[in-house]
Design a binder for these strands. Structure first.
Lengths: 256, 256
DNA sequence: AACCTTTTCGATACACCGTATCGACTCGAT
DNA sequence: ATCGAGTCGATACGGTGTATCGAAAAGGTT
């Protein structure tokens, strides 16, 4: 059973994916359980202790249930993580049920809309710092993730110059997403590091300082030295926003 | 010993970082060992079996040595991973020892130079698929990582409009790096997935197909459907390059 | 050359992980 | 009331990172 493309139990709906597999029927025997409950407990653990605080055993313990019980609702731990990711995507996807409520967006409204999406991504990533770690692999296919993707794609689709150009739309959305994932990952990492080693002297290079000072004193890396010494210290939010504008400029330039 | 900012053994050089801690003196007693040997073995394991193939026990076994032996050269597994990352950065940093050999770059040469850096990143990330997983957290401070950062910063510094603006330089380099990390992460993930589930029908949506077909047939997600149906199928390399041009356009636009 | 101190090695141990197995038990239907 | 089906979860397996510490070796001193 190394590869998993055999027929398994035979009660599949067509794909082995969680999203199409029905939950087992409710049983109130020892303790009522459901995917929602399991994912909720896992989210709580992850928010509190980080991703490594989420283990099958601990989630089960939080629900006062034996560890093996979870495997009736989830086939593997990876699947549980996937469900957690989609739960966070639920905070990113637009609250309105309709994916494209405005078929005729304003000519430059796309920038504002992408800013809004990016802001929701950032808020969610900061609220659930483990989220960004799980992001970035192959595209997520849960319903909320798909909804988020649909909105992003539709906004880019509405930008001037992208109307009948699906390839360009895909590329632009890809760059947008790559920026979000890459940037938020370092922001979260820095925030975590700051919190770990005391309340962060406000300047990261002062915290990590002595070593960098010694290295920079050697004279190689003149540009790093100049940047560290004389660059403004923007807040993480400002940095994120400034970088986002550059990405939006790049997308706008692609409109030819 | 939960936090590690106590004085430890007392023979520190000033910071607890690997980069400043000397190796233990060579001992030919049972088997000669060194950080280079350990990292080399770890790299081989990671390239062959992925990141989860790297365990202290396995690395030690590959060197025909007891597991605990490694802890004389490395304080923790995370430190070993850091050393591995810096080894890969050695393939990304420019081969010439001088960081800035051309003090007067051509007015548009910066684009070509950033393309070259991006290409080296991509090549390294594809050669060592585990690399991108370790990338993206707080900035890496190993000598090779710093060299790579120095070149990227100096190239941006040389772009028109960035001369005396360290903040802008930092922002642009940040966007560049975020794009690389974000994009390469999905490329590597897709490549891995393709290799895992058979030789990949050339189209990812055909491999993952049935589920997506069913979902898209429901009519929500019209933009995803359109893009999946009618977007050109660029090779990963082409996608990477096209996205990179958009990022470079964004950087160029920032020159005001 | 013999002793002793200092360092290093690595077997063992601990707490934890994901999950396969399978006997015991509970539930619903007959 | 009985039986059959299906779920539960204790136990077990093979793995992880690393703390501990007795034994052994290296190096320095007498």
């Amino acid at each position: 059973m190394t590869s998993s493309h055999d027929t398994e139990t035979g009660t599949e709906t067509g794909s082995g994916l969680v999203w199409e597999r029905p939950e087992p029927p409710e049983r109130r025997s020892p303790a009522p359980l459901s995917r929602a409950l399991i994912v909720g407990a896992a989210l709580e653990l992850a928010d509190a202790d980080g991703l490594e605080g989420v283990s099958i055993r601990r989630v089960a313990a939080a629900l006062e249930v034996g560890p093996m019980r979870l495997y009736g609702y989830v086939e593997t731990k990876a699947e549980l993580l996937e469900l957690m990711v989609d739960a966070v995507y639920g905070e990113i996807a637009p609250p309105a049920p309709r994916p494209t409520p405005a078929p005729v967006p304003a000519p430059t409204g796309w920038r504002e809309e992408l800013r809004a999406i990016a802001g929701r991504y950032r808020a969610a990533a900061l609220r659930h710092e483990w989220f960004i770690e799980l992001l970035g692999g192959r595209p997520h296919l849960g319903p909320n993730a798909l909804a988020a993707r649909e909105t992003a794609l539709s906004v880019v689709h509405g930008a001037p110059g992208f109307a009948g150009q699906p390839t360009r739309v895909q590329q632009a959305a890809g760059v947008f997403h790559a920026y979000l994932a890459g940037r938020l990952r370092v922001e979260v990492a820095q925030r975590r590091a700051e919190r770990a080693e005391g309340r962060s002297d406000r300047d990261w290079q002062v915290a990590m300082g002595p070593y960098m000072m010694r290295v920079l004193a050697q004279g190689r890396h003149p540009t790093i030295a100049e940047v560290m010494v004389s660059a403004d210290h923007l807040t993480p939010g400002e940095s994120f926003a400034v970088g986002l504008e550059m990405v939006l400029d790049g997308i706008a330039a692609q409109a030819s």
